[in-house]
């Protein structure tokens, strides 16, 4: 937790700097009216100050020397890659084709090995969602660029 919080606090300092530098290029307010840059600069300064304080407060805490990539975080990372693949799949192949593939793939990754479970749950879920959203609620689903 400490390591992640340190990295995140450092990232927040960088964000604060970016916000301030960008906001300085915004037009100035006229006649006592605050311009669009006033709040961003104020927030940037506060963010840098607090993130620095957070780093200072945890300076004595020893980050527990665990491997940064544990078995479970690796699993999360890989799942994220599968989701990115799914999103790309939706954009190209559309919802109806990529969803059962995604469900099948990620359930396999989550160690579901029973073929009947894999097939039924991935196809049935897609079918139910398709009918509920498209037919019953008439919400459009991404069709992809191929179709």
């Amino acid at each position: 937790m400490t390591t992640i919080s340190r990295i995140f606090s450092s990232a927040m300092i960088a964000l604060g700097l970016y916000v301030i530098l960008t906001a300085r290029t915004f037009p100035e307010g006229t006649g006592g009216v605050l311009g669009p840059g006033f709040f961003p600069i104020l927030l940037g300064i506060l963010l840098i100050g607090l993130s620095a304080l957070q780093l200072f407060n945890t300076r004595k805490e020893k980050a527990v020397a665990t491997a940064f990539l544990t078995e479970s975080t690796k699993r999360v990372l890989f799942a994220c890659l599968i989701i990115i693949g799914y999103m790309a799949g939706i954009a190209i192949l559309g919802f109806l084709i990529s969803t059962p593939l995604f469900l099948f793939g990620i359930m396999w990754f989550f160690s579901v090995r029973k073929w009947s479970t894999l097939l039924i749950s991935s196809i049935a879920t897609t079918a139910v969602l398709y009918f509920v959203f498209l037919k019953f609620l008439s919400v459009s689903l991404p069709a992809g660029i191929l179709f």
């Binding site: 989701i83 939706i90 579901v112 479970t117 969602l129 959203f133 919400v139 689903l141």
Partner: peptide, 15 residues
């Protein structure tokens, strides 16, 4: 089981 539930919730997030 979570390994069936989580994927479905993910699809719901996307839709």
């Amino acid at each position: 089981p979570k390994n069936l539930l989580v994927p479905v919730v993910m699809v719901l997030c996307v839709i």
